[in-house]
Design a protein around this nucleic acid. Structure first.
Lengths: 74, 74
DNA sequence: TTGTGACTTTTAGTCCGTC
DNA sequence: GGACGGACTAAAAGTCACA
C-alpha cells in the first residue's frame, strides 16, 4: 500500500519547494522571479495557501515547466 | 505556427467544458457532482473564474482524471 | 534564509433570479 | 440546457514586522 500524502495543498507546496530548490532559488529570489511576495511563497510551500490558477501558472512559468509537469503525480 | 489560446482561465474553462460534455454531464449535474454552484461552473467554462487548487482537484476528481491530465496541454 | 501572526484589499464562490 | 446579473459571505491575494 502506497503512502498517499496528506492534503493537496501540502503536496503541491512540497512539490514547489523541491522544484524551487532544484532550480537553485531561495524563497526570496524565487518570489522575485514570480513577482510575488516572499512570505506568500513560504505560505504556499507550507501548504497554507489555496493557490488559484493564475498564480499556479505564474509559478510553473518561473520554474520553466508546464502546468501538467507541475501537477504531475499530485 | 500553432494557435496559442488566449488566457489560462479561458483555456482551462474550455477544457473543463469539453471533458464535462464527454462525461455526459450538464453544467447543473456536473456542479452537483462537484458539490459546487451551477453558476460557478458556468463562470469557469466562460473563463471568468480564477479557480483555486482545492476546486481544481475537486473538478479533476469529478471527471475521474488526475490533475496532470486535467492540466495537460494548458 | 525562512517561519509566522496579523492584517487589509480583492476575489472566490453561493444563492437568488431573468432571459 | 446554458448565459448572465446583483447581492452577498467566505476565503484568496498580497504585505508587514519580528523571531
Amino acid at each position: 500500500m502506497v503512502k498517499r500524502a496528506a492534503d493537496i495543498l501540502e503536496r503541491f507546496g512540497e512539490r514547489v519547494r523541491v522544484l524551487r530548490k532544484e532550480s537553485g532559488y531561495s524563497q526570496e529570489s524565487f518570489a522575485a522571479a514570480c513577482g510575488l511576495d516572499r512570505t506568500y511563497i513560504g505560505g504556499i510551500e507550507r501548504g497554507e495557501r489555496n493557490v488559484a490558477l493564475r498564480n499556479i501558472e505564474t509559478i510553473a512559468r518561473a520554474l520553466g515547466i508546464t502546468l501538467a509537469e507541475l501537477m504531475d503525480d499530485l
